[in-house]
């Protein structure tokens, strides 16, 4: 919940009647919402509800067919720094260490600082032992932690996570969830999608519930889980099939 030690982040993201149409099919239908504050936001909903799509539109990977996605500027007058962690981590065909120094190179970190910073991140995520292994032969859990380490180095103000644990075993899921809490504690805004109710209960401060490309509910997590306002959300929480 609202942690008073956190810097108040004034980074509202506003979606105004955002729709996304692909081959005549409306995948997201006139979604309007405003994200602010600094709680962890969980986007929930059954498969095909449009969770991943909504995050891609927010992050700027896709342009909406209609409507606007508007980021307020940060203190430097620029849109906030963002990073995204995908369901299946996309890692370069290089060593784990090189994947990190590469990301630092892109964001303009001076050459001499890249390796020390990369090692720090590897250490933080418990990956020092596999620093020189090719990233793509690591286990699923290690790959996702490496993707998180890469995001960590970019010092994002907003971090999007698209079902980051859906292909992982319990230990790896715990590692990812710990990392998410860690990011949040450092002041990073978290926007994460999940269809795992227990995970959402563990992590969410705020829930956005999507169904069939529509925004059904947007409420504080406590309210959403204890007294959902729509029949669909109720059914989803009770584990009934809602699609």
């Amino acid at each position: 919940m609202n942690d008073m030690r956190l810097p108040i982040s004034l980074l509202p993201l506003e979606l105004n009647e955002v729709s996304f149409v692909h081959r005549g099919q409306t995948l997201l239908d006139r979604i309007s919402l405003r994200l602010e504050g600094h709680g962890k936001i969980l986007i929930m909903g059954p498969n095909g509800a449009g969770k991943s799509l909504l995050m891609r539109l927010c992050h700027g990977l896709l342009k909406p067919t209609n409507g606007q996605v508007h980021w307020a500027s940060n203190a430097n007058g620029k849109p906030p720094r963002q990073a995204m962690v995908f369901q299946r981590p996309v890692l370069l065909r290089r060593s784990a260490l090189a994947n990190l120094t590469y990301a630092l190179g892109i964001n303009g970190t001076p050459w001499k600082q890249r390796k020390p910073m990369a090692w720090q991140a590897l250490d933080h995520f418990g990956l020092t032992a596999i620093a020189h292994r090719p990233a793509r032969v690591l286990s699923g859990g290690e790959q996702q932690r490496l993707a998180l380490a890469r995001a960590w180095l970019l010092k994002p103000e907003v971090l999007f996570l698209d079902e980051p644990t859906s292909a992982l075993d319990p230990a790896a899921i715990k590692a990812v969830e710990d990392a998410v809490v860690d990011f949040h504690r450092q002041g990073t805004r978290i926007v994460m999608s999940s269809h795992d109710l227990n995970q959402a209960k563990r992590l969410a401060d705020e829930v956005i519930f999507l169904y069939g490309g529509r925004l059904i509910e947007h409420s504080p997590a406590e309210d959403f889980f204890s007294q959902p306002q729509t029949a669909r959300a109720r059914a989803f929480i009770n584990g009934e099939l809602v699609w």
């Binding site: 891609r56 992050h59 700027g60 990977l61 963002q82 990073a83 995204m84 995908f86 996309v90 370069l92 590469y102 990301a103 892109i106 964001n107 970019l154």
Partner: peptide
């Protein structure tokens, strides 16, 4: 395979070529 990640990192097309 790389497109979304490279876009997420904010890379221009020109900078993607050597990568």
């Amino acid at each position: 395979e790389y497109r979304e990640q490279l876009t997420s990192l904010g890379m221009s097309k020109l900078r993607r070529i050597p990568t």
